[in-house]
Amino acid sequence: MTTTPPTPGLEPAFEVEARLGRLEDHGTTRAGHRRIVPIVGGHVHGLFEAEIMPGGADWQLLRPDGAIDIDTRYTARTAADEYLYLRTFGVRSGPPEVLQALLRGEPVDPTQYYFRLGVHLETSAPRLAALQHSLFVASAIRHTDRVRYTAYRVT
């Protein structure tokens, strides 16, 4: 028997494109500079296919160094009316001028900034239940009106 833990790997799992509504800037709260970005739709493709329902959001905290703590929660529904709850947590960071360009909604090469997420899934659908037995991480891109990410299952 080995005493060394297995080295994790990554398997591509699914792609997400979340369409965003108008940013709500709540200003500086006790937690920090709070921004809320509504999630108004989108889709998921890969291990499962689903449409993202309106009503979710990204509850962001803008750090003093310009980085953003990401905290999203939203629902997706399959064609068979199965629901999935997705929650992401992560960080978007980079050089100040790049972060400012993103905040202004300008297109930025995604290699110029860091945008990584942990992805948590919940579902009551028996056919999708195995998704809840894995960890997922993602690499994301911020566009003016949407976020795209590729999620990987940690093996």
Score class of each variant (00 low, 15 high):
140 A>M: 08
22 R>I: 09
128 L>S: 06
51 E>G: 08
112 Q>E: 11
29 T>K: 15
28 T>N: 10
52 I>S: 08
43 H>F: 11
104 R>T: 07
2 T>D: 12
12 P>R: 05
61 L>I: 14
114 Y>I: 05
22 R>W: 07
119 V>H: 04
108 V>F: 15
78 T>D: 03
142 R>K: 15
111 T>Q: 10
29 T>I: 08
127 R>V: 12
12 P>S: 06
124 S>D: 11
90 G>A: 09
136 F>M: 05
103 L>T: 02
2 T>M: 07
46 G>H: 01
7 T>I: 14
52 I>V: 10
64 P>Q: 06
84 L>Y: 03
69 D>L: 14
139 S>L: 09
22 R>E: 15
34 R>I: 05
145 D>M: 07
50 A>R: 02
47 L>S: 04
7 T>Y: 00
104 R>C: 09
103 L>G: 13
57 A>M: 08
66 G>C: 05
27 G>Y: 01
92 R>V: 03
38 P>Y: 00
62 L>T: 07
141 I>R: 15
52 I>T: 03
110 P>I: 03
51 E>L: 14
129 A>I: 08
123 T>K: 08
88 T>H: 04
133 H>G: 15
11 E>G: 07
110 P>M: 03
95 P>C: 00
30 R>W: 13
56 G>V: 00
141 I>L: 03
7 T>N: 06
130 A>V: 01
24 E>Y: 15
53 M>K: 15
13 A>L: 07
112 Q>Y: 05
31 A>P: 02
43 H>C: 06
60 Q>E: 14
95 P>K: 06
39 I>F: 08
14 F>D: 02
83 Y>G: 02
128 L>V: 07
54 P>C: 05
77 R>Y: 04
13 A>M: 00
11 E>V: 15
110 P>V: 01
78 T>L: 11
118 G>V: 08
112 Q>T: 01
54 P>G: 03
4 T>L: 14
71 D>P: 13
94 G>Y: 07
89 F>P: 00
129 A>M: 13
52 I>W: 00
104 R>I: 03
29 T>M: 13
41 G>Q: 07
126 P>R: 10
17 E>F: 05
147 V>T: 11
31 A>F: 14
51 E>D: 11
86 L>P: 03
12 P>G: 07
75 T>D: 05
87 R>V: 06
131 L>K: 04
150 T>R: 13
104 R>F: 06
133 H>V: 02
23 L>D: 10
47 L>M: 11
118 G>L: 13
102 L>S: 02
14 F>H: 06
48 F>C: 02
131 L>G: 01
50 A>T: 03
3 T>M: 10
147 V>D: 00
5 P>I: 00
73 R>M: 04
